[in-house]
Amino acid sequence: MTEDAINQNPNENPESQNKPEVSPPASPVGEKTPPIEAKEKVSRRSFLTSATLAWGAFAVATAGILTGAGRFFFPNVLFEPPQTFKAGYPDEYTIGEVSERWKEKFGVWIVREKGMIYALSTVCTHLGCTPNWLGNEKKFKCPCHGSGFRSTGINFEGPAPRPLERYRIVLADDGQIFVDKTKKYQHEKGQWSDSESFIAV
């Protein structure tokens, strides 16, 4: 293609290339630019002052914008359910069953085993989808990449690298179960034996 282009107009190309070299320095381009002497000289001191002012103003403006943007991270109102809630009395949960009562509202499964009750997070530890509880197969199964967890939260299928997290769970003064999602207990860190990671019943 390039060879073609050159061959098609062999007369024009060399001319246009040579022109700037052949023509004298007083070319139209040179005339338009004003001579340097005509410009007002900027002293070093005034340059530094104006540069400091300009950069200072720029820094202040940037800081203002960043502060304003940062303010968005702390909204006045948060439309999310409270991080703690009362989940009724231990008797309301059957032994050996996974309760999905609080899944939709608080993102918590309450599991009652023989001797203990614990609160499991409904966030898959692989990439954060919400698994489904399959009652017949007695497992949590994630619809995104096929991770599987036992009712205890232990991962045994698919790519999930660690068990589901458990939330702080205690008995309130009135005898109800109190779940606190601000504190979580991770099995791989050996926190599931912590006294507040389950209720002994």
């Binding site: 899944k103 939709e104 993102g107 409904t122 989808c129 919400t130 994630c142 619809p143 995104c144």
Partner: peptide
Amino acid sequence: ANLADSPNPS
């Protein structure tokens, strides 16, 4: 959108 309800399969 509902956090508790992932389409199956997602």
